[in-house]
C-alpha cells in the first residue's frame, strides 16, 4: 500500500496526457486533457506552497533554541506574516483611485528592489572573473575567448564604430556555429530528459517515494 499505490498512481498519471495527446476521443479529451489540465493548475498551486511550512518550522526552531542568528529568523517570520496577510486579506494591483494595494506596494518597493539588487551583484563578479580567470591557456579556452570578444564587441553600439562588419559577424556566429552547438546540446539534453521520463513512466525510477 505504501509503495504500490503511489507507483500505480504515478504510472497512470504519466500515461494520461500521453494518451490524450495521440487519441482525440471526446471522453478522453474531456477527462485526460481538459479536466486534468485544470486540476493540475490547482495541485501545482498547493505544491508550490509546500516549502513554506518547512521555512516556518526551521525558523521557529531557530528562534526557540536561540540559535546563532536567531534575530534574523524573527525578521523573516515577521515580514512573512505581514506580506502573507496582505495577500490573504487583500487584492493585487491598483485601487480605483490609482493607489496600490499593500500587497503590490510591498512587492514593488521591497521584494522587487531586493531581488533585482542581489542579482545585479553578478555584474561585478563577472568583471573580476574576466580579469582573473579568463586565460588563453589552450586551444579551447582561446576559441572561447575569441568568440566572447566578437560577441561583446558586436552587441554593443560601440562595436559598429570600430567596423560596420562587426555586428554582422556577431550575428553570423550566433545564427550558425552557435546555433549548431546549441542544437547538439538541446538534442542531447532532450534525450536525457526523455529517458528520465520513460524510467518514471515504467516505474523503474520513483522520485515521488523520497530516496529510492
Amino acid at each position: 500500500m505504501k509503495r504500490q499505490v503511489p507507483i500505480m498512481l504515478a504510472i497512470t498519471a504519466s500515461f494520461l496526457p500521453v494518451i490524450a495527446f495521440f487519441f482525440p476521443n471526446a471522453w478522453i479529451n474531456e477527462w485526460f486533457n481538459r479536466k486534468l489540465d485544470e486540476w493540475m493548475v490547482i495541485i501545482a498551486s498547493f505544491a508550490f506552497l509546500l516549502g513554506i511550512v518547512s521555512m516556518v518550522q526551521v525558523n521557529l526552531h531557530k528562534v526557540r533554541r536561540r540559535q546563532k542568528g536567531w534575530i534574523f529568523s524573527v525578521i523573516i517570520l515577521v515580514s512573512f506574516a505581514i506580506m502573507a496577510s496582505c495577500g490573504l486579506f487583500g487584492a493585487q494591483g491598483e485601487r480605483e483611485n490609482g493607489t496600490l494595494y499593500p500587497f503590490t506596494w510591498i512587492f514593488q518597493f521591497i521584494y522587487a528592489p531586493m531581488q533585482a539588487t542581489m542579482f545585479s551583484l553578478l555584474a561585478f563578479y563577472v568583471a573580476s572573473a574576466s580579469y582573473r580567470a579568463f586565460r588563453v591557456k589552450n586551444m579551447e579556452a582561446s576559441l572561447l575567448l575569441i568568440g566572447a570578444l566578437i560577441i561583446m564587441f558586436g552587441r554593443i553600439p560601440f562595436g559598429a564604430l570600430i567596423h560596420p562588419v562587426v555586428p554582422d559577424l556577431a550575428e553570423w556566429i550566433m545564427r550558425f556555429p552557435n546555433a549548431a552547438a546549441q542544437r547538439g546540446i538541446i538534442i542531447g539534453a532532450a534525450l536525457g530528459a526523455a529517458s528520465m521520463s520513460i524510467r518514471v513512466m515504467v516505474g523503474i525510477e520513483r522520485p515521488y517515494l523520497g530516496k529510492s
Binding site: V41, I42, S45, F48, L49, G51, I52, M55, G69, F72, S73, I75, I76, L77, V78, S79, F80, A81, I82, M83, A84, S85, C86, G87, L88, G90, A91, Q92, F103, I106, F107, I110, Y111, M114, Q115, M118
Partner: peptide, 24 residues
C-alpha cells in the same frame, strides 16, 4: 543580512498571496 531576511520573509508571504489571489 537584515535586508536579505526581509526579502526571504516577504517572498514566502508573496507566494501565499499570489497562489490565493491568482489560482486558488
Amino acid at each position: 543580512r537584515f535586508a536579505e531576511s526581509v526579502f526571504v520573509g516577504v517572498s514566502f508571504g508573496y507566494y501565499i498571496g499570489l497562489a490565493k489571489i491568482n489560482t486558488l
